[in-house]
Amino acid sequence: MVFLQPLFDWIESRFGESINHFPLVELIFHSIDQTFVYFIFWLIGRGVFLAVKKKKKQPIKWRREIVLNVFIFYILLLIHLTVFREDNSIMNVSIVMRPLSEINWIPFVETAKLTQGTSLFDYYYNLYGNILWFVPMGFGAAYLMKRKYTFLRSLGIGIAVSFLIETMQFLFFTGVSDIDDLIFNTIGTMIGIVLFEISQWLYKKWQNKKTT
C-alpha cells in the first residue's frame, strides 16, 4: 500500500485478532489505497480539462464537479473491490479462457447455499453488500445526468456497470460471475435513484417554502 499502510498496520496490531473476517478489512484498505493512486491521475487529467475550459471562459459548475469527482472515486473503488482484489491489478491481469458454464446463471441458488455455511456473514455480505454498494451508483448517475435524467437511463447505467464488473471478473478470473450479483446490484441502483427523486422532491418543497 502506498498511502494507508501505517494506518492499516496500526489497526491490524490493535484489532487484527478481535475483528472477525479481518481479510475483508484488509481488502477494503488495499482497494482504497489503490483507488487513490488511479484517482490522482484522474484529477490531473480533469484539472487540465478545467484549465482549458476556464481559459475559454466557459462556466464551471463546482457543485457538479465535486459530485463528479466523488462518483469517479466511487467507481474506481468499486472496480478494485470486485475485480482487482488482493495482488491483482490492471498491470498484471490477463484474459483466462473458460467455458461460459462456469458462470452462475440460475438466480439465487448460490446465495441460498451461503445460508448453509458455518457463518451467515458471507450470506449477508453477498446479499446486502451487493445492494448497498450500488446505492451510490443510482443516486450519482441520476444527479450527473441533469436534464437528461430518466429513471430508466440511470438504471441502465447501473446495470451496465454491474455487467461490466461481472464480465471482467470472468475474463480475468478474479472473481465468481453470478447472476445474483447483477440482480442485487440492480436493486441497489433502483434504491439510489429513488433516494435521488426523494431528495429532489424535498429540495423543490424547500424552495417553494422559501419563496412564499
Results as ranks from 00 to 15, higher is better:
I40T: 12
I40N: 07
F41G: 09
F41P: 02
L43F: 09
L43N: 12
L43W: 08
I44E: 09
G45E: 02
R46S: 11
R46K: 11
G47C: 05
V48I: 15
F49H: 13
L50F: 12
L50D: 05
V52G: 08
K53Q: 15
K53R: 15
K54P: 02
K55C: 13
K56H: 09
Q58Y: 13
Q58C: 07
Q58K: 15
I60L: 05
R63W: 10
I66S: 08
I66R: 08
N69V: 02
V70G: 09
F71M: 08
I72S: 04
F73W: 03
I75L: 11
L78A: 12
I79S: 01
I79W: 02
I79P: 03
L81Q: 00
V83N: 00
F84P: 02
N88C: 10
M91Y: 14
M91I: 14
V93D: 06
S94T: 15
V96D: 09
R98V: 01
R98S: 12
L100F: 15
W105V: 08
F108L: 14
V109H: 05
A112T: 12
K113D: 10
L114P: 01
T115V: 11
T115C: 05
T115G: 06
T118Y: 12
L120G: 00
L120Q: 07
F121Q: 08
F121A: 11
D122R: 09
D122V: 11
Y124H: 11
N126Y: 09
L127Y: 06
Y128C: 09
Y128L: 14
G129V: 00
N130A: 06
W133Q: 13
W133H: 13
F134K: 00
V135F: 02
P136C: 01
P136N: 00
G138M: 06
F139V: 01
F139C: 00
G140W: 00
A141H: 04
A141R: 00
A141I: 03
Y143A: 00
L144V: 00
L144K: 01
K146A: 15
R147Q: 14
R147K: 14
Y149H: 08
Y149N: 03
T150D: 01
F151V: 10
F151Q: 07
L152E: 10
S154G: 14
L155V: 04
G156H: 03
G156F: 03
I157Q: 02
I157V: 15
I159L: 15
I159W: 04
V161Q: 07
V161D: 05
